[in-house]
């Protein structure tokens, strides 16, 4: 419903955008009738809910292709980009974040923290441009952008095209995750239960593995949910840098062309994904933390 309101707030008549400047008033009226934008808002809203229930997101004003098909094609780029980038970010952030916390008194622990501080200040697109400059232009190792027209029919080509974008995403998200992992690890190290375990003869590393991983992962999981959602939604910038035909560039194009069905489709699918990720993160936390499971029954 929020989406519906937001989209109707966009000024500019879709019929105008569709026909371009110089259309006659009759043409515009006809186009409006066809699009249903001449109907009262209430009717429009009911139509909107109706089509949502049938998973019908309409057809693009510009290409006249079904919105859902277009989204499907573009998901084939954005989903692998997001997921691979995210997994790589985890691979970077978790060990380094733990080291930065455990070895916070050493020079390399300090260095990791400083570099991650720098990492969160770097805009995604600039990092992308820098990586292109180094890997595509200076070293000539990887393509500077683009995605094979035939998509995943040639997996190797597709993967090569995604390597630099994935690395860009991973470094940016990794830097921000690292700080959360470090903070969570510091909390764990300071915790009483780790002290208890050590006081009863457990080694530090053993205590960290047996008690720290579970306890540290609870706060991290909610951050992971938010970061995964924003990686997906923030794909627009990376896709622009590397000229990838994903959800983000679809969104950008839809905004520029005032292609409402496409814009609405991207937003609906994105919102669903965000909610789904949030729900999954919530479930995962409940699985780990018995206190969260019990809270529903007995709010104490």
């Amino acid at each position: 419903m929020v989406l519906f309101a937001l989209l109707r707030l966009l000024p500019g008549d879709p019929a105008n955008a569709l026909l371009g400047v110089g259309a006659t008033p009759e043409q515009i009226a006809a186009a409006r009738a066809q699009l249903g934008s001449d109907q009262p808002l209430g009717t429009q809203f009911i139509n909107y809910l109706n089509s949502l229930a049938r998973f019908d997101l309409g057809t693009s004003f510009v290409s006249h292709a079904p919105v859902l098909d277009e989204i499907g094609n573009r998901m084939a780029v954005t989903l692998p980009l997001t997921l691979l980038g995210f997994v790589l970010a985890l691979v970077i952030a978790i060990p380094l974040g733990v080291i930065a916390a455990v070895k916070s008194q050493t020079w390399y622990g300090w260095l990791i923290s400083v570099v991650s501080q720098l990492g969160i200040a770097i805009p995604v697109f600039w990092l992308g441009i820098l990586l292109v400059t180094v890997f595509a232009i200076n070293l000539r190792l990887l393509p500077s952008g683009g995605f094979p027209l035939r998509g995943w029919q040639n997996p190797l080509e597709a993967i090569t095209g995604l390597l630099l974008p994935v690395l860009t995403v991973a470094l940016v998200i990794g830097a921000s995750l690292l700080r959360y992992v470090r903070a969570a690890t510091l909390d764990v190290i300071d915790s009483d239960y780790i002290r208890t375990a050590r006081a009863l003869g457990s080694g530090f590393t053993e205590a960290l593995i047996k008690h720290g991983i579970r306890n540290g992962s609870v706060p991290i999981i909610s951050v992971l949910g938010i970061e995964l959602a924003s990686t997906f939604l923030g794909a627009v910038v990376v896709e622009r840098v590397f000229t990838l035909p994903g959800m983000g560039s679809m969104l950008l194009l839809a905004i520029q062309q005032r292609d409402y069905p496409n814009l609405q489709g991207v937003l609906i699918v994105s919102t669903l994904l965000v909610l789904l990720i949030g729900f999954a993160a919530d479930m995962l936390q409940r699985l780990i933390d018995p206190r969260l499971r019990d809270r529903v029954q007995a709010p104490t």
Binding site: S191, D192, Y193, R195, T196, A197, R198, A199, L200, G201, S202, G203, F204, H211, R214, N215, V218, I288, D289, P290, R291
Partner: peptide, 28 residues
């Protein structure tokens, strides 16, 4: 060294702390 301390803790001494709620691992 930490290693020789680990062999003393839990062997020569064991400790009970003040706040049992935080001293126990809440997730086990």
């Amino acid at each position: 060294s930490e290693r020789s301390m680990v062999s003393l803790r839990g062997n020569v001494t064991a400790t009970v702390f003040q706040e049992p709620l935080t001293a126990l691992d809440p997730l086990q």
